[in-house]
């Protein structure tokens, strides 16, 4: 339970983590946000992330793995720079969510939880993302795109391909 002497994170993220553990009555409450922010920076939860986070929180690496494997947004393998998450749950399904997913598969040439060879895109079929009334909806990383059609989807992909897409973390 300490701030490590050397960190694998950027100074900003490391500073954020230093503060994060002080926000709650117990240090461990910082675990899930810390993992998510670490993933935002590193791209996935690597062994090094597990190690440093365990040290920062003051728990075992096993504890960290037990928790991280529970949450579906946390991944232990790299995703694409832009992770396309297509909701196919009921409201989206009724309004063409699967067609959007299929469209993305064809456009990107990858399947569920796969990454394009250039590492730019990954694709994921996800559960309800809370955009049911604006279905079908997707998220690119954390950004929502809703009321999609295959044409609108193409426009979104094009934006990211040409580097004009939003990059929020």
């Amino acid at each position: 339970m300490s701030t490590p002497a050397t960190t694998i994170f950027s100074p900003e993220t490391a500073a954020r983590f230093d503060r994060l553990v002080t926000l709650y009555p117990v240090r461990r409450s910082a675990l899930i946000p810390m993992l998510l922010y670490a993933q935002d920076e590193v791209g996935y939860i690597s062994d090094e992330v597990v190690k440093e986070v365990a040290q920062r929180i003051g728990i075992t690496e096993l504890d960290v793995r037990n928790v991280l494997s529970y949450y579906s947004m946390l991944r232990t393998k790299p995703a694409g720079k832009y992770n396309i998450q297509v909701c196919t749950n009921i409201s989206c399904m009724l309004r063409g969510g699967y067609e959007i997913l299929e469209h993305c598969k064809q456009r990107l040439g990858i399947g569920h939880k796969e990454v394009t060879p250039d590492g730019q895109f990954s694709l994921e079929e996800v559960e309800c993302i809370g955009a049911c009334c604006w279905a079908p909806a997707i998220q690119v990383n954390y950004d929502f795109y809703d009321e999609l059609t295959p044409e609108k989807m193409d426009a979104v992909l094009e934006e990211y391909k040409t580097g004009r897409g939003k990059e929020t973390r």
Binding site: V26, I32, L36, Y71, S72, E127
Partner: peptide, 23 residues
């Protein structure tokens, strides 16, 4: 506080577990 993808955490006691940094 942010979650990290788990419907079950909507259950009140699971939410507390999650907020305490657990499964």
């Amino acid at each position: 506080q942010t979650g990290a993808g788990a419907y079950e955490v909507g259950e009140e006691s699971a939410l507390m577990e999650s907020l305490e940094g657990k499964r």
